[in-house]
C-alpha cells in the first residue's frame, strides 16, 4: 500500500430539503483497500456512495481523488469531460441490478469491449481477445461471448457487469449491494470471485451492503451508518467481533445464527 491515500473525503453532507441523506462524513481510502459501508435500509449508504462516485452532487464538503499523476483533484471541480473520462477508465461502478450497468441489447463481448472502444481501441481482434480473457476471469464460458446479457442468469449478469468494469484496470471500484438479489450459493461464488479479483489487481473498493457477512468476507475496514451519520468505523474484524457503538452491537447481534 502506498503512503498516500487514494480518496480523501472531508465533511461530506447531502440534504434532501430538510431531510438528511448523509451528514459530515470524513474518511480516507488507501490504494488496495476495501471499505464496506454497512447499515440498515435508509441509513444513507447509497446516498453516500453516489456522492463519492459523482453520481449525486453533495450539499457540502469535498471529495478529493489522487489521479494517476499523483495529484489530488477535487472531484466536483473537474470538468464534466474529465469526470466522465475518470468514471469509465480509472473507476468502476457495480450496480445492484445488473441491467442498470449493462447494455442489455448488445452482446457480452461488446459489453466488456465498450470501455476499450471508448478510450480509443480500434482493433477488433484485440478487443475481442481482451473480452474473451475477461469473461474467463469472471467464469463465463467463452462460447457465450456473442450472447446478449438478457440470455444470462442473474449471477452471470452480475459477473459480466464486474468484467465490464474491470477491463480498463481501474484503481477504484464502487459497489452497491453487489450480491443483492442473488441466491446464497451464487452469492458465495461471486464473493469468492470478487475477493480474488480485488486482491489480484490491488483494487481499492467501496462496497455498500446491508449484509454483514459480505462485509466480513470482502472488506478490510468498515463504516457503520445510522440515520445519515457514521456511528462507528474500524477494521472489519474488530467492528464485528467487538462492536463499540450501541447501534453496531444491535446490528451484529441481530444476525441470524443458523
Amino acid at each position: 500500500m502506498s503512503d498516500l491515500p487514494l480518496l480523501k473525503v472531508n465533511a461530506l453532507s447531502k440534504f434532501y430539503g430538510s431531510r438528511i441523506g448523509c451528514q459530515n462524513v470524513t474518511f480516507e481510502l488507501w490504494p488496495g483497500e476495501v471499505l464496506a459501508i454497512v447499515g440498515e435500509s435508509g441509513s444513507g449508504k447509497t446516498t453516500l456512495l453516489n456522492c463519492l462516485a459523482t453520481r449525486l452532487a453533495p450539499s457540502a464538503g469535498s471529495v478529493e481523488y489522487r489521479m494517476r499523476d499523483s495529484q489530488f483533484r477535487d472531484l466536483y471541480r473537474l470538468s464534466e469531460a474529465e469526470r466522465r473520462f475518470l468514471m469509465r477508465t480509472d473507476w468502476g461502478f457495480v450496480h445492484q441490478n445488473p441491467a442498470d450497468g449493462l447494455r442489455m441489447t448488445v452482446s457480452a463481448g461488446a459489453n466488456v469491449g465498450e470501455r476499450l472502444m471508448a478510450v480509443g481501441d480500434r482493433h477488433y481482434g484485440k478487443i475481442r481477445a481482451t473480452a474473451t480473457d475477461w469473461l474467463g476471469r469472471v467464469e463465463i464460458a467463452e462460447d457465450r461471448i456473442d450472447d446478449q446479457p438478457r440470455a444470462f442468469s442473474g449471477g452471470m449478469r452480475q459477473r459480466l457487469q464486474i468484467a465490464r468494469n474491470l477491463v480498463t484496470n481501474p484503481r477504484l471500484v464502487f459497489m452497491d449491494e453487489p450480491t443483492g438479489g442473488l441466491d446464497v450459493s451464487v452469492q458465495a461464488r461471486l464473493l469468492d470471485l470478487l475477493r480474488g479479483l480485488v486482491s489480484d489487481l490491488g483494487l481499492a473498493a467501496i462496497v455498500v451492503t446491508h449484509d454483514l457477512a459480505v462485509a466480513r468476507l470482502l472488506s478490510h475496514r468498515m463504516m457503520v451508518m445510522k440515520d445519515g451519520h457514521i456511528v462507528e468505523t474500524g477494521l472489519t474484524d474488530r467492528v464485528l467481533d467487538d462492536p463499540q457503538a450501541p447501534y453496531t452491537q444491535l446490528l451484529v447481534s441481530s444476525i441470524l445464527q443458523v
Binding site: 464534466e80 472502444m117 477488433y124 461471448i145
Partner: peptide, 22 residues
C-alpha cells in the same frame, strides 16, 4: 447530446463490433 459535446463516440464502435461478432 452530451456524448456529441464531449466527443464520446466509443458507443458507435460498439455497434460495428456487434456487426462483426454476428
Amino acid at each position: 447530446r452530451k456524448m456529441h459535446a464531449l466527443e464520446e463516440y466509443g458507443l458507435m464502435h460498439v455497434k460495428l463490433y456487434e456487426d462483426i461478432a454476428r
